[in-house]
Simulated scan of single mutants.
Amino acid sequence: MAAVKGVQAAGAVDLGALLDAGEGAVVTLVAGETQLAAHRAVLAARSPVFQAMFQHDTLEASSGRVSITDVEGEVMRQVLSYIYTLQTPQLSGTARHLLAAADKYGLPALKDVCEQQVAAQLTTENAAAAAVLAVRHSCPKLTAAAVAFIKAHNFQVLATQGWADAMCSHPQELIEVSRLLADPPAEISTPATAEEGPTTRARTPAAAAPVTSSRHTLPPDDAAVSRLRSLSRDEKGRRLIQTAQGGETEELRALLAAGADVGSIDDDRRTALQWAAWEGHEEAVTYLLESGADVNARNIRHNTPLHSAASAGHAPVVRLLMRASADANIRNLSGYTPLHWAAQEGHLQAATVLLEFGANMEARDDEGNTPRQLARKNNHQQLVQLLT
């Protein structure tokens, strides 16, 4: 095992030297005023996003130039250094920006380290921004840590300028944070923070319970379950769908414990899983899947939960469903696959995940349109390039 680790380390160092030399680089990454030379084979090997970009006849693949508008030059330089060396850069003040970039390019190990760094630097002023970051980029440990921090500080965070700024710039994410504050995941651990200092005894973010796994939450309250057992079968089903739509996972747990049918449907034959997928409630989706929900259930238009998540652009939910063996190429009544929906609505990340799991980009709907043609009709240029 030690020998294997040695070979891996040597490989990383060798790639790092290749980056410094710049020899044979065939791709230029442009982030603002910063231009970085890289080898497309290395980028594709490390990042599924770059792999999807370069394995097709995209503009980036043909021109050898990748324009990056949402990552600053210095941050992109750190991302590139990590891709070549697999060594985490000095994070100091860039952890949040690097986390977002790591999520964008599918670098989970780097993202995890950034999560821990941001959680360790929580203060009353930056906690709102950290919570928003965690929700936007599906960071369960950081979400749990930020929610625990806000509650541990008697909600003082809500009176800061940081909270006010977050409310103006990211209202939807902050609404989700507020919901978690009202009904937080159980067993959340509070990390050591910059305000508490090194002498304060605290558990690390790694010990926090991920909000996307219902297996780490407490059992449903017995009294609540007893109360719900008296409801009719139809009423239990109606409430199950309603709570799934709102992402109220604890209520879902109680209803299912009280005998609600996980396959209950509404008037359009939509299940609780379809509603949770449409709304992007990752924790609810996870629990419903664990409870036996049909991942390929069809509504009245033959859309599945995967169609719903792809249409709404919830890439993390798309990944959850694919890992639960959802059919990436299943068709609705119009012949749309989930990739057709993602292409039509302009959801690049959802489309990337679908392609990663084998979605057919040449599939045609009932009018003969491929996903790429729908992307072109709706002027989603990045998707047109991805699907070429």
Results as ranks from 00 to 15, higher is better:
N299M: 07
H170S: 14
A359P: 02
P198A: 11
E283L: 09
E356Y: 06
G237D: 07
R301D: 14
L288F: 07
Y287H: 14
T124C: 11
E290M: 13
V147I: 09
R298L: 05
T243M: 13
N332M: 05
I300P: 06
V225F: 01
R376W: 13
A343R: 07
T94C: 12
L158E: 08
A257R: 06
R331P: 11
G64A: 02
L383K: 01
P48F: 06
A38Y: 04
Q51H: 15
R96D: 09
T204G: 15
A144H: 11
L256H: 04
T304K: 03
R301A: 11
R77P: 11
L107E: 05
A312C: 09
V66N: 04
A159K: 15
F155N: 10
F149S: 02
L122Y: 06
A21M: 08
R215E: 14
L99S: 05
V353P: 02
I83G: 01
I330V: 14
G313E: 00
M76V: 08
I83R: 02
L231M: 12
K141C: 11
V295P: 04
W341F: 11
P171A: 03
E23R: 10
W275E: 10
L354N: 00
E187V: 11
D261V: 03
A315C: 07
R364S: 07
A3P: 10
E74Q: 10
T199R: 10
P48K: 02
E279S: 13
R301M: 12
V75A: 05
L273N: 02
H380Y: 04
L133Q: 05
E23F: 11
L43R: 07
V79K: 02
N154P: 11
Q381C: 12
D222A: 15
P220S: 00
A130E: 08
G346V: 08
L333D: 14
T34P: 07
A297S: 08
L273H: 02
L320W: 09
D327K: 03
K104C: 03
L15D: 06
A223N: 13
G22F: 03
L289Q: 02
L320A: 15
A37G: 11
M53G: 03
K104P: 06
L228E: 05
W163H: 09
V157C: 12
Q381N: 10
A145M: 01
Q117K: 14
V262E: 06
G346Q: 08
R203V: 12
V384D: 01
E74Y: 12
L355K: 01
V75G: 07
P220H: 00
E283P: 10
A309Q: 01
R65N: 11
G368K: 02
A186I: 06
T352M: 10
A31S: 09
H216F: 14
N126Q: 01
S230V: 12
S214K: 04
R65P: 11
Q349G: 03
A182R: 15
H56V: 09
A207H: 14
V353H: 04
D20R: 12
I330T: 06
H347K: 03
I175H: 06
Y82G: 09
L374I: 05
G368C: 02
L228T: 05
F155M: 15
Q35L: 13
T249P: 13
V118W: 00
P48I: 01
T337E: 00
A31K: 02
R65M: 07
L142V: 11
L133E: 05
F54V: 03
P210K: 01
V317F: 01
V135H: 10
E176Q: 14
A21S: 12
Q55Y: 08
